[in-house]
Amino acid sequence: MTAMYTTPTTDTRSGTGGAGAAVLRAEARLFGRELGSLFWILLFPTILLLILGAIPDFREADPSLGGQRVVDLYASIAVLLAMIMAAILAMPAVIAGYREHGVLRRLRTTPVHPGALLAAQVGLHAAAVLVSVVLALGVARLAYGVLLPRSLAFYALCTVLATAATFAIGAVITASARSARAVQTVGTIVFFPTMFTAGVWLPVQSMGGWLHDVVVRTPLGAAAEALNDALVGRTPDGADLAVMMGWTAVLALVSVRAFRWE
């Protein structure tokens, strides 16, 4: 008998640090196979920006927007759209599927915590958002002469806060329902109000009166204001940053409380 199951070999590997990296590598490969998600996250925001920028009126400076053009506003809306696609439409479905099919449960029987899988998924989707942001801003600059962010540090900060807020929304969606199908339904329902408040149909800056006051208190409305401020070089409004952070904290807490591994 060869004792193949019990005889130790000399090849010893590092512990869970290597395993965490292996999980990330494997999930990155799998993410690369999700062509639908990649399209909606990476390409769709930029495509939408290109289409809207093709409308001549949107390339006219508008005094009511402080001299900005509509297409300038849409650069930041495209950025938010990438976040919405990744955090609300794509990722909850993946994680809910892993939970429903017992992938997370199975991982609990190994030395690797299933949290490594979630961390890899969040990291990969966030990385895709970052690529999409760079692509959208770069294309906006080249195609329509939209300024690159004047205040890069603030733009980066606002991007991080907005990403955190949208992923927190996605986390609540994932935790809210048990089955993958229900999670997908909830995700689709949440998808439209987040698109609206991000300004996809009507930029937040063009909204008037009470609608504007309500929308800037939502995470994506506040994000749209703050990102555009950073784009033109203004210091973002502290209230907008506080709204994003507040939502993130509350939603993260709710999702952590409600989340079930099985």
């Binding site: 193949m4 199951y5 130790p8 070999t9 090849d11 010893t12 590997r13 512990g15 869970t16 290597g18 395993a19 990296a21 292996a22 999980v23 494997a26 190994t110 030395p111 690797v112």
Partner: peptide, 11 residues
Amino acid sequence: TLWSSFYDDPV
């Protein structure tokens, strides 16, 4: 490959 990486001394 993934599962092997979880253990110190995989088969």
